[in-house]
Design a protein around this nucleic acid. Sequence first.
DNA 1: CACGTATTTACACTAGGTGCAACTTTGCAC
DNA 2: GTGCAAAGTTGCACCTAGTGTAAATACGTG
Lengths: 234, 234
Amino acid sequence: MTVSPDPIPPEASAQAPAPTSRRELNKAATRQAITDAALTLLRSKGPGNFTVEDIADAAGISRRTFFNYFGSTDAALASITHGFLDNAIQQFKLRPADEPVLQSAQEALMALADPMTVAPLAELFTLTQQSNLMSHSELEAWDHCREQITAVARDRASATPGAADELYLRALAGSVISCGKAAMEVWFSRRGADLSPASLAELRQLLIDAMALLGSGFTTGSTPAPSPSASRSS
Amino acid sequence: MTVSPDPIPPEASAQAPAPTSRRELNKAATRQAITDAALTLLRSKGPGNFTVEDIADAAGISRRTFFNYFGSTDAALASITHGFLDNAIQQFKLRPADEPVLQSAQEALMALADPMTVAPLAELFTLTQQSNLMSHSELEAWDHCREQITAVARDRASATPGAADELYLRALAGSVISCGKAAMEVWFSRRGADLSPASLAELRQLLIDAMALLGSGFTTGSTPAPSPSASRSS
DNA sequence: CACGTATTTACACTAGGTGCAACTTTGCAC
DNA sequence: GTGCAAAGTTGCACCTAGTGTAAATACGTG
């Protein structure tokens, strides 16, 4: 795949530090073309009903080149999830080190509950929902995120005097991920791919509630606290 | 694979309600032969270094028959995990309906922290640890367990007046699974495949602590509570 | 333009996974 | 026991995933 010499000024859509050579541009374009093609095929044919060759053809590259970019169809699609979660981790790392992990997670997720960011993830989710378990690559992406959270939590703990142990770190990070997933699952099952402001507000509330449940130890005793509770509102 | 007409009396090793016909016996034997062969190959060659054909040969069946039993090598190995978790779910379902879910989970896991039950799982874990993400089939097994927990929790909730919502159920079940996994990970990383009484006692304690962390909302504020805390001792 | 390097591509090959038809074993009635 | 139908196994053909390799093409730089 060769990019035609679009005279795009260098500052256009500069997300990364961008050593914007033609090689880099081509690679980025190919990568994008592959994920676009994969998503299009997913839309039109449904999960599991298209091959790597289909994607390669649609993206205008050879089958072999596809494998130079992704290890499988799943991986191509999971790059969407990966992008979202990388973003989340980035936000998470920006939080002050003395903030409780749960709150950091909540704040990081809040920052991402906007249409632009969740749209691709929401569509991917709805399109793959029928075959109810996530693909291996997608699970890998979530697991990678979990490890990142563990690492950050470990750093923060080592700064405080009574450093928490490994069990604490792993259990916490795993639970945060699980609760985040749970919130998204519930959101998708309630609203489908609805990205309206009201729907996104509901997502935010679900994320807040999920983290609050985790922080309260899932106590149901006196306060069932299903929906109206919130530690903060955007 | 044909079982020779061993004159085994019908009560020998009757685990299931056992409609013990010859057909059932043959199938069970084949299934067992496959998982045994897979585990042996895993031991001798390491993960990813043997093929379905290798397993089939070792189990004395054709490649095609292997696929009549399992969808992949991973699935054959994951049957170990599946067995353990099915067992766990069974224990979980036996708990009284008015018991808090977290405590039920803890009790169910306690009942399984004996050498016979954890040994296969421990070995599988250590043998596949180097390639750090679990196989797809193994993750499926854990996810199936998560769904079962969700279902039980849903039943229990619908019996109580202030029925908890879907977010609560999913977040709780997901967190329980995550914490269980975390406890096992820590155990394996500390003790390898050590199945001594002391090691198993440590596993029990880790499981107890993990559920306690979840129940306390991971509060570190005043009580770091890393190890000596426990809501009960076996 | 020319040359070295990065990238793409075609080709060959191993292995996973599935449908199908022939064959063997088992359960059951007689 | 014989015979028959259902369940299970096997070989075979076929498609797809994924990888190694070497030739061809595109790019960066002088």
